[in-house]
């Protein structure tokens, strides 16, 4: 064997070895696109990256047919595209205050164009190492521009705060998904400060009092 052929042989062997090594479960984190978000650190890749229907050959065949206009729908390739149902499989809640499907109503068109609240991953982009990756606390204003509560028990009524534009976010007093057992703050000025909310969005523990109402499942395979 010449030195050149030996070089090619070694190169090929090493490459194949590396590929097989990376496919092993213990080395999954090596080819992850980024650190997992808080709470997801212990999850295995297969929790979200679910193998799509058919063999790779069938998937290529279906997609070639789709691009040749011989089929109406594309087929997911290797893994299913991530959608809300993947998230809901663990995070399903009876009384979510802002369920994603709510934003599919036609009247939320402008908000959808701006922040896509109809998709879980618009706010919670995985592999970002943050709890909330894209939603800004001030985004509440995109929908809650008008509010009149007859039996308003806070020290300065909500509608007054809105009229005076004397508010930054709802999240100082309210938890977006309503998943904390907490007493609502009634004194304006004593709400959770903006920077604390931002820290929470990054990765700090939740600033809201009270326990979590619904704990997420630890695996989509959990019954």
């Amino acid at each position: 064997m010449t030195a050149k052929a030996f070089g090619y042989f070694m190169g090929l062997s090493l490459s194949l070895g590396t590929v097989f090594l990376l496919l092993e479960q213990d080395f999954e984190s090596w080819h992850s696109s980024g650190d997992l978000n808080p709470g997801h650190e212990e999850l295995e890749c297969r929790e979200c990256h679910i193998t799509s229907e058919g063999t790779v050959r069938q998937q290529i065949q279906a997609n070639v047919k789709y691009y040749l206009d011989q089929r109406k729908t594309e087929n997911d390739f290797v893994f299913n595209k991530i959608n809300n149902k993947h998230c809901i499989a663990c995070h399903d809640r009876e009384d979510d205050h802002h369920p994603t499907y709510r934003f599919n109503e036609p009247r939320f068109k402008k908000v959808r164009e701006l922040i896509h609240p109809e998709l879980c991953i618009s706010c919670h982009q995985e592999h970002s190492a943050r709890r909330v990756s894209q939603f800004k606390p001030t985004d509440c204003k995109l929908c809650h521009k008008e509010l009149h509560i007859e039996d308003d028990s806070i020290t300065v009524p909500h509608h007054e705060l809105i009229e005076r534009d004397d508010w930054e976010t709802c999240l100082g007093c309210h938890d977006f998904h309503g998943n904390h057992e907490m007493e609502l703050e009634k004194t304006v000025g004593r709400q959770i400060k903006f920077n604390k909310i931002q820290d929470y969005f990054n990765s700090a523990p939740f600033p809201y009092s009270g326990k979590l109402i619904h704990k997420a499942k630890e695996s989509i395979y959990e019954k």
Binding site: G54, R57, Q58, Q61, A62, V64, K65, R71, K72, T73
Partner: peptide, 16 residues
């Protein structure tokens, strides 16, 4: 040949 001639059964097009 790989994709169409010797290919396995087609995946169902759910939109049909």
């Amino acid at each position: 040949v790989y994709l169409f001639k010797t290919a396995p059964a087609l995946l169902a097009d759910k939109s049909i």
